[in-house]
């Protein structure tokens, strides 16, 4: 072990000052996410903190209101389809780009990653023009396809990272032992990059589930996704109902992140802590 972890022999006042600033920044980051949760259990029509009374009425409201439930299911359905599309296409592309060298590889990679930085509103307008003559405006599958284009870079980045720590001689050994290309992928490559694929799929699901701007342009009154429903009610009023929906959405994201983290931790443990 040659390199040494970063350490600084600073005086106590400097350490305390740095720690205090870091604590403040951490609170600033976490507080607004956490505050939504107690607000969702408010018993009154108005938002006050701490709530004057506690109740589950906003959750009851959510689970008994058809339009909230329809929007939630629609968003889940769209996110699942988008995540599957993005994961299959993104994983294949990561495999193709990681091992091959060809002219223009950098340009292709930049193009495939560009949905991460191109503002959503630009894609929204283009997709509307593109979908209108095809009759895809207002269709859930149209939204899912658009979301898959935006979510595919998350899969590409995660799988590429997983492939970086992968010894290509393992694939070579499988091929030398007579495995076909597909068997090599199924039995050797995929089990090793699986954590990256799963993480990419989770990010893709959440990217679609939370996406609102593109969906807003190609939605129809009969197909309103959950973020659009939330956006519309936020613009009208600040009621605790949104806090309850937000808490449920946060709960879903947190559980998905934990699933992804567990898969990754298991994989690290299996490979003997090697990363």
């Amino acid at each position: 072990m040659s390199a040494r972890a970063l350490r600084l022999s600073a005086g106590l006042p400097a350490r305390v000052a740095l720690g205090a600033v870091a604590l403040l920044v951490a609170l600033f980051l976490v507080f607004p996410v956490v505050i939504v949760i107690p607000l969702s259990f408010s018993g009154s029509e108005f938002l006050s903190f701490p709530p004057e009374s506690w109740s589950l009425r906003w959750y009851a409201d959510f689970f008994t209101t058809a339009r909230w439930l329809e929007s939630a299911w629609l968003s889940i359905w769209i996110a699942v389809v988008a995540a599957i599309l993005a994961t299959v296409l993104g994983t294949a592309a990561a495999l193709g780009l990681a091992r091959a060298k060809f002219p223009g590889r950098a340009v292709v990679t930049a193009f495939l990653l560009s949905p991460l930085v191109v503002p959503a509103i630009i894609v929204s307008i283009g997709v509307y023009f593109f979908y209108a003559p095809l009759g895809l405006v207002g269709s859930p599958i149209g939204i899912a396809i658009a979301h898959a284009t935006l979510a595919s870079p998350f899969v590409l980045v995660n799988v590429t990272a997983a492939l970086a720590g992968f010894d290509p001689r393992l694939e070579q050994a499988a091929k030398n032992l007579g495995a076909s290309g597909w068997s090599t992928f199924r039995l050797v490559t995929f089990p090793i990059i699986k954590p990256g694929v799963m993480a990419g799929a989770v990010f893709a699901f959440i990217a679609s589930f939370d996406e609102m701007i593109v969906a807003l342009f190609i939605t129809s009154p009969g197909n309103v996704t959950l973020p659009i429903r939330m956006w519309e009610s936020m613009r009208n009023e600040i009621s605790p109902a949104i806090a309850a929906v937000s808490t449920l959405v946060i709960l879903l994201s947190v559980s998905l992140f934990f699933v992804a983290a567990r898969i990754q931790a298991r994989a690290v443990a299996r490979s003997g802590g090697d990363r």
Binding site: G90, L95, F111, L112, P115, V123, F129, I145, S152
Partner: peptide
């Protein structure tokens, strides 16, 4: 020799070409 073929990137390139690049070009 162990390289996975580069054409595996084609489906995503085509997908983004049709549903992302073409719309932006139309805009």
């Amino acid at each position: 020799r162990a390289a996975t073929p580069a054409w595996l990137a084609l489906p995503l390139i085509a997908f983004l070409g049709v549903f992302y690049l073409a719309p932006v070009a139309m805009m």
